[in-house]
Design a binder for these strands. Structure first.
Lengths: 142, 142
DNA sequence: ATGTGTGCAAAAGCTTTGCATGGAC
DNA sequence: GTCCATGCAAAGCTTTTGCACACAT
């Protein structure tokens, strides 16, 4: 189920968590930045403009909670911090990362799904998730 | 060029770096653990058994240098530390990561190479490297 | 009323850096 | 002899944790 401001309360309640102003604001920001890959620090800086009193720890705790609830997904680029993006319920997508300007292009492809099935058979491995990143140069940077 | 204890000196010299006992020991350890995915801390602990006086900073600096020289490759699993593996000059390989026991199975496939070409055309993106990880459950953990 | 959630500050990792000494060339 | 490399310790970053107070249910 894709998270919205309207169903956040029920998503939280389903796991015995409470709806708080901070959680609402953070989800709002993630929705506003759908498609972005924000770090905790970046979320914190945006939240502060709406709720200057919020603590950084709360942002970390909320992002962790949202991950656990499947509202967002944690990404692993080769950087020194973790980034998060909204889980949209749409098809899985993957990333093309430009080594020069850092631009991230998203893509998805059914070829990968077939490849995955083949892989499962060959290695007796049950795939639950995949993360694929291609690094190189985007159109502008080549 | 695949790094060995014999050609390390020329690899370093080619970029105006010196051959030191510490750099030799660290390469030795990476070679002994070919196929492993070691963190800086783990390399440090192994090195200390041969050279108790070595500093952790030296290990970090050496791993960074080896990355720059293409001797090793930095990996990004979803953990809190960076891991490194020897660059073998063989075909690129990718990882199946077991979510339960943490086992890492390596694979490579020519299907991916084709897929990559297609992707380059479609997104006007020049791919220089790819990292692919599938998460799930290995044979033992299913 | 109860127990979860928050803010603050301190602590805990991992990694980097400054500086004086030591070693490769 | 020169300059790079090292060891040590301190600092830097991101992230986590402990605790008292506040708030959602």
């Amino acid at each position: 189920m894709e998270a919205t401001l309207d169903n956040l309360k029920s998503i939280l309640a389903a796991s015995n968590y409470k709806l708080t102003a901070q959680r609402k604001i953070i989800l709002q920001i993630l929705i506003n930045n759908k498609g972005e890959h924000l770090s905790a620090e970046e979320v914190y800086n945006i939240v502060k403009t709406e709720d200057p009193g919020i603590g950084l720890a709360t942002v970390y705790r909320t992002l962790e909670l949202f991950c656990e609830l499947g509202i967002i997904q944690q990404l692993t680029f080769d950087e020194n911090c973790r980034r998060y993006e909204l889980e949209t319920g749409e098809e899985h997508h993957h990333h093309l990362v430009c080594s020069k300007c850092g631009k991230v292009i998203e893509f998805n492809d059914e070829v990968l799904e077939e490849f995955e099935s083949e892989l499962e058979k060959r290695h007796s491995f049950k795939v639950t998730e995949h993360k694929i990143k291609f690094y190189g140069y985007c159109e502008d940077c080549q």
